[in-house]
Simulated scan of single mutants.
Amino acid sequence: MEDDELSFLEEQLAGTELLACVTCGEDTLHAHLEVLEVYPVGTELLMQCTRCQTERMWMDWTPPKPKAYHN
């Protein structure tokens, strides 16, 4: 596998979470579709199950990084 292919796959995997899917009844990979809201304590995301394609909201409790400001 070439470096650019490996980098692409690592980037795709970084955009997923292993979550319980109500439709599938199993823990499956869910892909990040959209950022719904950014709060000081975390980020609300729209996720899609990579197996059955159902969508759900999910809260990532990692505090967002502060934005850089230019003077």
Rank of each mutant, 00 (worst) to 15 (best):
M1K: 09
M1I: 11
E2M: 06
E2C: 02
D4H: 15
D4L: 10
E5D: 15
E5Q: 15
E5C: 08
E5A: 14
L6P: 02
L6G: 02
S7W: 09
S7I: 12
S7K: 14
F8K: 12
F8V: 04
F8L: 11
F8G: 00
L9C: 13
E10Y: 10
E11A: 12
E11H: 04
E11C: 05
E11W: 03
Q12D: 09
Q12F: 15
L13H: 05
L13G: 02
L13D: 04
A14K: 12
A14V: 03
A14H: 09
G15T: 04
G15S: 14
G15Q: 11
G15N: 13
E17P: 00
L19I: 08
L19Q: 06
A20T: 04
T23S: 09
T23G: 00
T23D: 05
C24A: 05
G25I: 11
E26A: 13
D27G: 02
D27I: 03
D27E: 13
T28C: 15
L29H: 12
L29R: 05
H30D: 00
H30G: 00
H32W: 02
H32G: 00
H32N: 03
H32I: 13
H32F: 10
L33I: 11
E34L: 14
E34P: 02
E34W: 05
E34F: 09
V35H: 03
L36Y: 01
E37I: 01
E37F: 01
V38Q: 10
V38G: 05
V38C: 09
Y39A: 03
P40L: 08
P40T: 09
P40W: 08
P40D: 13
P40Y: 06
V41K: 09
V41D: 13
G42S: 07
G42F: 03
T43R: 06
E44I: 01
E44R: 12
L45D: 00
L46Q: 05
L46V: 02
M47R: 11
Q48C: 06
Q48N: 01
C49E: 01
C49K: 00
C49N: 05
T50F: 01
T50D: 04
T50S: 08
T50I: 03
R51P: 00
C52R: 03
C52K: 04
Q53N: 13
Q53R: 15
Q53E: 14
Q53T: 15
T54K: 07
E55G: 02
E55N: 12
R56N: 06
R56F: 01
M57W: 01
M57F: 03
M57Q: 14
M57L: 05
M59E: 04
M59F: 15
D60I: 01
D60S: 10
D60W: 02
W61T: 07
W61G: 00
W61Q: 04
W61H: 07
T62P: 00
T62G: 01
P63R: 06
P63W: 11
P63T: 04
P64C: 10
P64L: 12
P64Q: 07
K65E: 11
K65D: 08
P66H: 00
P66N: 00
P66D: 01
K67Q: 08
A68S: 03
A68C: 05
A68Q: 02
Y69M: 08
Y69Q: 06
Y69D: 04
Y69L: 10
H70G: 15
H70W: 13
H70L: 15
N71G: 11
